[in-house]
């Protein structure tokens, strides 16, 4: 047998290659089963980068579906709440060029929070049903209120309100949240002079 192989170089190499192929194929197959990943980690990572406002401005019912769609090759510039920061982060992650925000889906604005004008609220619970993150408190025929800490500013509660008592107000900078702005944010004419409060 060995002699036969030694004599037939072609046969020997064929056998060796087939053997190797089988061995590594088996190994790969085993590894694929053993270390199987159930969900695509890229989707999770993209989802991590999205702002989780669940506002649906991208055209998807929530952030995760949009993350899924990006992983499948969708454009990365459909998220106005995340703005350019999010686009850049996703571009860096996926190693593609960062593009400006798609204006079709909305513009990047200051972060806002919903406030219910409580004396006008009729207690219809429509906003409660609309809120994607359960940030509105109240029950039927009783006044509702927004839990400020939990509101993502998604805007979804504004339209359903029949008496239009919800305002989206920009988040105010308080003494606790204020910090020095980087020098670039200061108008060049007054390089070091700085008079107005900084909105983060």
């Amino acid at each position: 047998m060995i002699n036969l192989l030694l004599d037939n170089v072609v046969l020997a190499s064929l056998l060796a290659l087939i053997g190797l192929g089988g061995m590594f194929g088996g190994l790969l197959g085993y590894a694929a089963e053993k270390f199987k990943i159930n969900s695509d980690p890229v989707i999770d990572t993209i989802d991590e980068l999205l702002p989780q406002t669940q506002c649906g401005q991208c055209g998807f019912p929530g952030c995760r579906p949009y993350a899924q769609s990006i992983a499948d090759g969708d454009a990365i510039n459909k998220c106005p709440p995340g703005g350019q920061t999010t686009i850049n982060a996703i571009a860096k992650l996926l190693d593609i060029t960062a593009v400006p925000l798609d204006e079709e889906h909305g513009q990047e604005e200051l972060r806002t929070i919903a406030y219910i004008r409580e004396d006008e609220c009729i207690g219809c619970t429509k906003c409660i049903q609309a809120c994607p993150v359960d940030a509105i408190l109240g029950s039927a025929k009783l006044m509702h209120t927004v839990i400020e800490k939990e509101c993502t500013g998604c805007d979804l509660c504004v339209d359903p309100c029949p008496v239009d008592c919800i305002d989206m107000l920009p988040v105010k900078t308080s003494i606790d949240t204020w910090y020095w702005p980087s020098p670039e944010n200061i108008p060049p004419s007054t390089t070091s002079a700085y008079t107005e409060g900084h909105a983060s």
Partner: peptide, 21 residues
């Protein structure tokens, strides 16, 4: 100072985002 503030804000936003999720 600006960078520290930005980093802390980003951290806070991240916690907020995961809470929202």
């Amino acid at each position: 100072r600006g960078s520290k503030g930005d980093i802390l804000t980003a951290r806070a936003e991240k916690t907020m985002a995961s809470k929202a999720r």
